[in-house]
């Protein structure tokens, strides 16, 4: 803890802080500004003293603050297991503060590629999952047959017509009834 502060320190004693102060990226802010998400009860002086004591960051005279109301969301809340789609709720508002820094700060560079995070795989998996959900969903009868399925059916028909394979009833449920007396 620094003993000499260039400003008048607050006298609120905070021994065990149980809240989050999040540094937020804002592409439009110049390097001598930083934006934070703070608890809703935070004041500008609280943030100034907190940054000074916990992070040794000196903050210029100007701090801007606003409270951002959340959009309403479907469901009763985020913590329940089964979402209730007919109920709506509004998540809590968040407080954002933009401080002027005494020393400029530039965020570290973005990662060049996201192979460590499996971004490509996650994207492919989510696309496949979405496709599967569509094929199993309510509108599955209205969906057009996929091109892949069409080409395979064409190959099959061609092979049948050329006599390369013999048609047999399939072993699925439809075919079971035909052959059940032969067993």
């Amino acid at each position: 803890m620094a003993t000499q502060a260039p400003f008048r320190l607050g006298r609120k004693e905070l021994h065990l802080p149980n809240f989050l102060v999040i540094l937020k990226y804002s592409s439009w802010l110049p390097a001598n500004y930083a934006s934070f998400i703070v608890p809703i009860w935070f004041s500008k002086l609280d943030l100034r003293d907190y940054l000074y004591h916990a992070y040794n960051v000196r903050v210029g005279p100007s701090i801007r603050s606003y409270v951002k109301q959340s959009r309403i969301q479907q469901g009763k809340g985020t913590r329940i297991i089964r979402p209730q789609y007919k109920r709506w709720h509004r998540p809590r508002a968040t407080k954002h503060m933009t401080v002027e820094l005494e020393r400029p700060f530039v965020w570290p560079a973005e990662p060049a590629d996201y192979t460590d995070w499996n971004k490509e795989e996650v994207k492919m998996a989510s696309e496949q999952q979405e496709e599967f959900n569509e094929s199993q969903g309510r509108a599955k009868d209205a969906l057009a047959v996929s091109n892949e399925h069409r080409s395979k059916m064409r190959e099959q028909a061609k092979a049948l017509l050329e006599g390369k394979v013999q048609w047999r009833p399939s072993a699925s449920k439809g075919g079971m009834g035909l052959r059940m007396y032969e067993r």
Binding site: W117, K119, S126
Partner: peptide, 16 residues
């Protein structure tokens, strides 16, 4: 902070 930035870069649920 890192989680918020990761979700901003990737989109929520688009990265591990």
């Amino acid at each position: 902070t890192l989680e918020m930035e990761r979700k901003r870069l990737a989109g929520n649920g688009q990265m591990y």
